[in-house]
Amino acid sequence: SFYVAIDIAPINLASFLNLAGEHFSALNVTSPHKNTVIDFCGKLSSTAQKTQSVNLLVFDNDTITGDNLDVLGFKSLVSRNEIPLNDKNVVVVGSGGVARSVIHAISETSSPAAIYVASRDPDMTERKLEAYDYDYPVIPYHEMFRICDVVINCTPDSAERALPKPPASKDSAGVAIDLVYNPARTVFLKIMEDAGWRILNGEDMF
């Protein structure tokens, strides 16, 4: 067996998957394909069905089965690092497949006080989440630190530039998780660490 990274442009995804089963027994899937590969799956796991996000394809004869291991990965990250989520206000930044997987993982294993979704465009994000039957309050970026105890970034933005900064007046620091793990300390995590927050990247999801 071997593991190799293959960069597939969206326009070439269909032709690639039509031939992939002849050469691979399984494939991991990353953005931007986690939702679009669903159209090529003959079967979906219950987790992939709920999150409408797939990051594992398994080829069995002529059938492609889609699964979601991001949910299990985030549960592992929380467990390994003993992240307190019960009775906490949790803010998830982003609304894509990874964000939906994180929300699903939290709702299955913890009892937070509330889960919020932070977005640059709350109206668009609300419509997007409604399409996936995710009913969580959506807040603009600038409000996220007013209420959160735990913030989880599920977007790629933080690798190159910072998300909003926590106010200096916040009474107590919380936990900041950035699922980006390359670089290990993103701009966002550096700022949160300087503000006194406990920081973690996404490496422990794997």
Rank of each mutant, 00 (worst) to 15 (best):
Y134Q: 08
S119R: 09
H104I: 10
P122H: 05
V92T: 13
S111Q: 15
R161K: 08
N68Y: 02
V90A: 04
K50S: 07
V91R: 00
C154T: 11
H104A: 14
I152F: 04
I139S: 01
M144N: 05
N86K: 03
D171G: 09
L179S: 05
S76R: 15
D67T: 13
A105N: 07
E160A: 11
A131D: 07
Q49K: 13
P112L: 05
C148T: 02
E108I: 11
N182W: 06
K165C: 07
R120T: 13
V175L: 05
D178P: 04
V180W: 01
P167F: 10
V92S: 08
A159P: 03
R146Y: 14
V71H: 06
R161N: 00
R127N: 13
H142L: 09
G73T: 05
Y141I: 12
A131E: 09
G94K: 04
S53N: 05
V138M: 06
G97T: 12
S79K: 14
D60M: 08
N86V: 09
N68R: 06
R161M: 00
N89S: 08
N61E: 12
S101I: 11
P137T: 05
N68I: 04
I106S: 01
D178Y: 01
S111R: 15
N89I: 06
V92G: 09
F59V: 10
A162H: 02
A114M: 07
I152V: 14
G174A: 05
S110G: 00
Y141G: 08
S169F: 15
S111V: 15
G174E: 03
T63L: 11
L163W: 01
P164H: 02
P166A: 15
S169R: 15
D60I: 10
A131Y: 11
Y134V: 03
G73F: 00
S53Q: 06
H142S: 14
R127P: 11
I152Y: 08
D123K: 14
D149I: 01
D133V: 02
T125M: 10
P164N: 01
S169L: 12
E108D: 15
I177F: 03
L129I: 12
D178E: 01
V180Y: 02
S158K: 00
N61L: 15
A99D: 03
N55T: 03
L179R: 13
E143C: 12
N86S: 07
K88C: 08
V117T: 06
D70G: 03
Y136T: 05
G96I: 01
Y141H: 15
E108H: 08
P137V: 06
I106E: 00
E108W: 04
S172H: 15
A105P: 08
I103G: 04
L72D: 10
D121N: 09
V93D: 04
E143Y: 03
D178V: 10
Q49S: 14
Y134G: 01
G97L: 11
G174Y: 05
V58A: 09
V90Q: 04
D171S: 13
K165D: 09
I83D: 01
L56E: 08
P164V: 04
